[in-house]
């Protein structure tokens, strides 16, 4: 099972890298989203897969009996999902606003902050 999921994680990483290499903001957003999901799955697989009982401690015990699922990756993924979800929402809004005011979704055309240098920098000796 770990092997299959590891292959799936690799596949998702490949897809996201392909999308991230694009210059279009839409593909970049999708790439970031797929990358986030691939990472969450990676955390899940890193915690080892078990098919036993849920991670609950029986009443009266201080330590769980053997054979429960690993609860830590679930907590980590939940945290990571909430964070990446909110950042994803921000990226969507940011991209939309950027499209509205810059009139392009091609990152190569976004040169407002970094205009092509029209002149060489001024030298001290020109003073």
């Amino acid at each position: 099972m770990e092997t299959i999921l590891a292959v799936l994680v690799g596949l998702l990483f490949a897809i996201s890298v392909y999308l991230l290499l694009s210059g279009s903001l839409i593909r970049l957003i999708l790439g970031v989203f797929v990358l986030g999901n691939a990472t969450h799955l990676l955390i899940f697989v890193s915690g080892r897969l078990t098919r036993e009982s849920p991670p609950l401690i029986e009443s009266g015990l201080k330590v769980a009996e053997a054979g429960i699922a690993n609860p830590l990756p679930q907590a980590l993924i939940l945290t990571a999902i909430v964070i990446s979800f909110s950042l994803f929402a921000f990226l969507l809004v940011l991209s939309y606003r950027a499209y509205q005011s810059l009139d392009t979704i091609d990152t190569d055309d976004m040169r407002v902050a970094e205009p092509h240098a029209e002149t060489l920098p001024m030298r001290g000796r020109d003073v």
């Binding site: 903001l25 970049l28 970031v32 950042l87 921000f90 990226l91 940011l94 991209s95 606003r97 950027a98 005011s101 810059l102 990152t107 976004m110 040169r111 407002v112 902050a113 970094e114």
Partner: peptide, 15 residues
């Protein structure tokens, strides 16, 4: 405008 331009690069690469 240039803030949005800078923010796009900042946001994607930092994320």
């Amino acid at each position: 405008r240039e803030q949005l331009d800078g923010a796009v690069k900042y946001a994607f690469l930092n994320l």
